[in-house]
Amino acid sequence: MAVSVVLVGAGLGLRMGGSVKKPFLPIHGKPIFLHTIERFSQTDVIGEIILVVGEAEIQFLREQWQDVLDACKVKKIVAGGKKRQNSVYNGLCQTRADAEIVLIHDIVRPLVRKEHIEAVINKVRESHAAILAAPMKATVKEAGSDLRIQRTVPRNNLWMAQTPQGFKRELILKVFDQFQDVDREFTDDAQMVEKAGYPVYIVPGTDENIKITTPEDMRIAEALLK
């Protein structure tokens, strides 16, 4: 069963500060995007990786990293769109037509484990749509506009969505086509699939699979990757 991966990294990364975008920040001498790519390229069942970045970064990647990317199953580098869902769609359209499963992953999650990648793939084979998620550990409070607590939300069935999120290719393209002209921003790909009425299942992950957003996240990732 052919598996394609869309790695999404076309955002501005403004919360990190500085002039270098998040995917290109180094951790232990290697840019974040390369740490992430290697996690997927080392998974045997994955046949190709589509890299989605800002249009301004495409030439730089081709000039500086093409040989490394070729060795890591990166088949295409695609420009992102205005919103995340536009960037994902651009990448999905470039996946192989014979791919049966597509994984969508944030390129700034370099700590995803190989066994979790494989677990998501296996769950998609069974159920058509699955995401990696970590169980909620914190006590969650719901508050009003005045910040007065309204209730404590039971956390037993609460999960923190992560990536990769995996889908049968035919399904995810159908769903993206359905919402192509809808003026709404979806926070993740599974939300779009849920909205279309299809079931999505959770594959339990860990808190280590962080999305690097702030300088504090960088320090955590450096410690974990060490």
Score class of each variant (00 low, 15 high):
I149W: 07
K123R: 12
L158M: 14
L132P: 04
P135Y: 03
Q150W: 01
V140E: 06
D181G: 06
D146H: 07
Q162D: 07
Q162F: 11
A134D: 04
P154K: 08
T187M: 05
A161L: 09
K168V: 05
E170Y: 02
A143W: 04
H116D: 08
E142P: 01
V153K: 10
Q165S: 15
K141F: 14
E142N: 08
V153A: 08
H116M: 01
V124G: 00
L147V: 11
P164T: 12
T163F: 10
I131W: 00
T163V: 13
N122F: 01
F167S: 08
V175G: 09
P135I: 03
N157L: 09
W159P: 05
R125F: 01
Q180T: 12
E118K: 07
K174V: 04
T163P: 04
L171F: 11
D181L: 10
I117T: 03
M136L: 11
Q150N: 13
I149L: 06
V120Q: 04
Q180Y: 13
V124F: 02
V153Y: 06
R125S: 01
H116E: 07
I172D: 12
S145T: 10
P154F: 10
L158F: 13
E185R: 08
G166M: 07
T163L: 07
R125D: 02
E115A: 02
D177Y: 11
H128T: 05
N122P: 00
A119S: 12
K174C: 09
D188Q: 06
G166T: 14
I131E: 03
T187Y: 05
D177I: 06
W159A: 09
D181N: 15
L132R: 03
N157Q: 09
K137V: 12
I149H: 04
G144W: 03
V182C: 06
I172S: 11
L132A: 04
R148N: 11
G144N: 15
Q162S: 10
P154T: 12
P135H: 11
R155T: 15
E185A: 10
S127Q: 13
D146P: 05
V153I: 15
D177N: 15
R125P: 00
L171E: 10
W159D: 07
R151N: 13
E126C: 02
I149Y: 08
K137P: 01
F186C: 11
K123Y: 02
A130Q: 03
A129T: 02
M160P: 00
E126A: 04
H116V: 00
F167D: 05
D183Q: 12
V120A: 02
N122M: 01
I172E: 11
E170S: 15
A138R: 09
V124Q: 00
K137Y: 05
M160S: 12
H116G: 00
I131A: 07
D188V: 03
I121P: 00
L158K: 05
D183N: 11
E118H: 01
V153C: 06
P154I: 09
A133P: 01
E170V: 08
N122C: 01
I172P: 07
D146S: 13
R151W: 02
N122R: 05
D177M: 12
D188S: 09
I117C: 06
L173W: 05
K168G: 15
F176T: 12
K137D: 10
R184S: 04
E185V: 14
I149N: 09
K123T: 05
I117Y: 03
R148Y: 09
K137N: 11
V124P: 01
I149K: 07
F186W: 14
D188N: 15
F176E: 14
A129P: 00
W159V: 09
P135G: 08
P164M: 10
R169V: 13
